[in-house]
């Protein structure tokens, strides 16, 4: 229906799907983390696209223009910033976990790692 006019939202949803399936189904830890980043950034893209209004500018008062009609909605931008901070810290934690896993098991494959840690426990 409005697929062509809302192409940014469409792209965001496609990206979300890609990121989601990569995070859920990929066995390689690094690719999982990349998937997570794509998924979160897709949501931020969606949010930013929702805050934008065609033909308006960022809400910074220039030349004394105070009318609401001149500006886009700034709240989504603020939310995106908060979200990015959260997403970055989660990525950092996941990467540090991956480093520790790799040092211990010398592989990035989560299925292999799980099998190896079970064996280790049975000994």
């Amino acid at each position: 229906m409005h697929f062509l006019t809302n192409y940014v939202e469409m792209a965001a949803m496609v990206l979300f799907g890609i990121g989601f399936t990569t995070l859920l189904l990929h066995r390689n830890m690094i690719k999982k983390i990349i998937g997570f980043s794509i998924m979160d950034n897709a949501i931020f893209l969606f949010l930013a696209a929702k805050g934008y209004v065609e033909g308006r500018t960022a809400p910074i008062v220039v030349d004394g223009v105070q009318s609401v009609e001149a500006y886009i909605n700034p709240i989504p931008a603020g939310l995106v910033l908060t979200g990015i901070v959260v997403s970055v810290s989660v990525t950092a934690l996941m990467l540090s976990l991956t480093v520790r896993l790799y040092r211990r098991y010398h592989t990035l494959d989560i299925d292999e790692i799980t099998a190896m840690c079970r064996q280790e426990d049975d000994k």
Binding site: L24, M29, F36, M39, I43, F46, G83, R100, L101, I110
Partner: peptide
């Protein structure tokens, strides 16, 4: 311990999926 490290990683993966859906 190896087992807790793997448990934490799997916990994070499932929880990130949950947070992603919640955020959307």
């Amino acid at each position: 311990r190896g087992r807790t490290l793997v448990a934490a990683t799997r916990y994070m993966i499932m929880n990130l999926i949950g947070s992603g859906l919640f955020l959307l």
